[in-house]
Design a protein around this nucleic acid. Structure first.
Length: 177
DNA sequence: ACCCCGATCGTA
DNA sequence: ACGATCGGGGTT
């Protein structure tokens, strides 16, 4: 199992977001399959952390694609993103939900970005990690399974930018193995 | 230095 | 509907 190539992330963020559905997310000995994501695109997106330009917190979003952007939210949860597009263009895909594949109890609830990182043990010590490197502890990999249908909807928990249907959820998901 | 509030979640 | 909990970013 090897990480997705950087070229996967170096594309328009909406394409990356859709194509991320069904992929495996691997951390330590845990594997989950991604079922819901959101896109945050550029400095014109009022819901993005990059809306007010480059700051210490958002510098990873302005960096090269394929790196992990991980931040603390509400003082107690972490959110995991994968940086997309090109260096100096801030964009990322937020991983919002997944389902357990291995290394976790089958009934583990991974529906929500905070739950997902908590159950996997992902924290901001991994912020900025290049997930495309061969031995990255955290990475995406192929699953050869695609959702039969994708729903596009408004993003969760934001005030501005709700007109963009940049949340993508896999439905009619193919059964595993 | 201060203040506000958030890409959330669990409980009421 | 609301509290927990704290760092970032804007303002003073």
């Amino acid at each position: 199992m090897q990480p997705l190539d950087r070229s996967f992330f170096a594309r328009p963020t909406l394409s990356v977001a859709r194509d991320t559905l069904g992929k495996y997310l691997i951390f330590a000995d845990k594997i989950v399959q991604i079922t819901e994501v959101e896109a945050y695109i550029g400095t014109e997106d009022p819901a993005s952390h990059a809306f007010h330009g480059l700051t210490p917190r958002t510098q990873v979003m302005f960096g090269p694609p394929g790196h992990a952007y991980i931040y603390l939210i509400y003082g107690m949860y972490h959110c995991l993103n994968f940086v997309t597009e090109t260096k100096d263009f801030p964009a990322a895909v937020l991983i919002r939900a997944a389902r357990p594949v291995s290394g976790l109890p089958v009934p583990t609830d991974l529906s929500g970005p905070g739950k997902l990182t908590r159950e996997l043990g992902i924290t901001r010590t991994l912020n900025g990690l290049d997930t495309c490197l061969p031995h990255s502890p955290l990475f995406l990999t192929e699953s050869h399974q695609k959702p039969t249908r994708i729903i596009a909807d408004s993003r969760i928990g934001i005030k501005n930018g709700r007109e963009h249907l940049w949340r993508f959820t896999a439905v009619d998901f193919l059964p595993l193995t």
